[in-house]
């Protein structure tokens, strides 16, 4: 299983370099404009899209057929993809946290407390994990290309929810949510753990029935 994660990391090497450029670009933009603190969210979105790229490569290279001809069993393949997703999200968390802290330090317009930074980072990462949990079984069922289409839909869910909530929700309800925002990550954590476990089970079931 370790070999599979290593293989995916090798495949993503070019993309990792791209991230570094992206982060540098983002920081420059931020320093010039003082834009919002969306870096952790950008990182989380990348951590959802990168594994999909590895699926595309695997499909093009007929990797699964090769790996399953070797000493690996189907559980290894699925488990390794989930592990890769978690690893990428951990990297997103680290970059998001450090980046946001640095930007916050240099910014003249934004002054976030450590709690606020942690809140922004944790919500971004947890939403990213939700995204992974939703998209992985879809990719296993439909393949990487169709999965990419669904990804856009999956990403729209939290954005639309927030927009609709802001527009239509009762002001008291809004007040209640903004007063209790710090509880949000804890609810998300429970959702993510349950969702990830369920997602893994569904993906495995789909993959076990596949032929190569």
């Amino acid at each position: 299983m370790k070999s599979l994660v290593i293989k995916d990391i090798f495949m993503l090497q070019k993309a990792f370099k791209m991230i570094l450029v992206l982060v540098a670009f983002y920081i420059v933009i931020f320093l010039l404009t003082g834009a919002s603190a969306a870096l952790p969210m950008v990182m989380a979105i990348l951590a959802v899209t990168f594994p999909i790229s590895t699926f595309s490569y695997d499909e093009a290279n007929k990797w699964d057929r090769y790996a399953l001809s070797g000493p690996l069993v189907r559980e290894d393949i699925v488990r390794a993809k989930y592990l890769l997703c978690l690893l990428l999200m951990a990297v997103a968390l680290i970059i998001g946290f450090i980046g946001l802290t640095i930007m916050n330090f240099f910014s003249a317009t934004v002054d976030l407390s450590l709690t606020e930074i942690l809140l922004i980072v944790s919500i971004s990462i947890l939403l990213g994990l939700c995204g992974q949990a939703i998209i992985l079984p879809i990719i296993y069922k439909l393949g990487a290309e169709k999965g990419r289409m669904f990804l856009i839909a999956v990403m729209m869910i939290p954005i639309l929810t927030i927009i609709l909530f802001n527009r239509f929700a009762d002001p008291e309800l809004k007040q209640f949510f903004s007063n209790n925002l710090h509880f949000f990550p804890f609810i998300l954590i429970i959702l993510v753990i349950a969702g990830y476990a369920l997602s893994y089970k569904i993906s495995l079931r789909i993959y076990m029935g596949k032929e190569f």
Binding site: S3, I6, F10, N61, K62, R65, Y66, G70
Partner: peptide, 24 residues
């Protein structure tokens, strides 16, 4: 095993392919 299409390591370098195999 050697199958008819050998594209499994197309996105990797020679040394990376060997590294993956040695771990596998």
């Amino acid at each position: 095993v050697v199958l008819d299409e050998n594209n499994a390591y197309d996105n990797l370098s020679f040394n990376q392919a060997a590294r993956v195999e040695s771990t596998m």
